[in-house]
Write a protein that binds this DNA or RNA. Sequence first.
DNA 1: CAAAGGTCTGAATGGTGGTTCACTTCTTTC
DNA 2: GAAAGAAGTGAACCACCATTCAGACCTTTG
Lengths: 213, 213
Amino acid sequence: MAYRETPAVRARLDAARTRLVEEATAVVAEVGWAGASVGVVAAAAGMSAGSVYQHFPSKSALAVEVFRRAAGREVEVLGAVLGGSGGDAATRLARGVEVFARRALESRGLAHALLAAPADEAVGTERLEFRRRYRALFADVVREGTEAGLLPPQDPEVTAAALTGAVGEVLVDPLAAPGSPAAADALLCELTALALRCAGAPPTRRTEPGRRP
Amino acid sequence: MAYRETPAVRARLDAARTRLVEEATAVVAEVGWAGASVGVVAAAAGMSAGSVYQHFPSKSALAVEVFRRAAGREVEVLGAVLGGSGGDAATRLARGVEVFARRALESRGLAHALLAAPADEAVGTERLEFRRRYRALFADVVREGTEAGLLPPQDPEVTAAALTGAVGEVLVDPLAAPGSPAAADALLCELTALALRCAGAPPTRRTEPGRRP
DNA sequence: CAAAGGTCTGAATGGTGGTTCACTTCTTTC
DNA sequence: GAAAGAAGTGAACCACCATTCAGACCTTTG
């Protein structure tokens, strides 16, 4: 025996793998799944096409990891807002939609990749799961609201699906690209108001979503 | 000179072209855009792969025509319901959503192809336009409602986008496949109620969507 | 430093599927 | 029926990637 993996080597490999995933994410956000060939992604990460296969068994596996990382972060953030203790169900719902939308607006490319861009089958499956989780988060809050009598009776799953669909639709359409920060704020405002109406929350005046105290 | 196209020939050619488009639509509804290769589609239409190119300059062009035909029909139907004279804006809105959703439920494959299935770039562009038209139809009704004071102030475009997104999201997810006709009716009911809440219509009791007098 | 066992490369391989084209098979006209 | 043109065919062509692999290059150990 004359060679064993040393911590330094392990670290270098891990770093390379991480870099690969990160650069692949950037490429996907930029040009979509279709344009992210193994060659392009490898070049972006500063390695050869062949080397990709030392980190992942296939392009699909890499794509799935890229998706999971990015989507997982989003679910986590949304979960924290919706599940937190910042006000009643309706308030958290509004804040959740705002966060969802704001993050998507801030990186439209990634949002598009996660929500809508054509992708291969493996990523498509992953996407369904992702939407399901998003929906479950929204549905929980809606359910809480109806049980507390704050929201009218409704199927929480349908409402939750509508919320993700609505935000996705508004954001993904290139027409909806707000030119100015003010326009973005207005859009967020409309979206939160819409979300509250969707869930049937009574139309009271609420804090402006974009305001910072 | 010794040959000129005769009406009979023209008719045969047109019929072949129509058949090609129709069969291609069926194939796409069945297996999605990805699975609809030129060979498969040609076989379904009873012609050879080469013959497809006598009717269309490229596969993309055929795909676009398939999309336009199917989507155009949907837009037309929805437009008739929303723009018709059957009640106030809110009622027509609810009926429009119901029609949209019912038709999608009745041919899920096609709905999926039109709304969500991965497609090549040309079809993707067409899809954006299609959604835009859908949105414009809904937006008009919402605008009418707000101007009549029936609906609260809101950005009609955002509400309209939400409606298409919501219906799409609910319908396209395989989980939402209703097993029984009763479940489908319940889903439609939830959807119309949701749509009315989305637009901010006052929560009065309305006619059951599925009822026939 | 030499041996052993990695990592890394990039050209070759292979599968897929749109597109073309030389050829066959009609249709029409004279 | 023969010539003039289409229409129709399907095998061959080609572009495009994902994937592999033989060899080059590194790192570690004794």
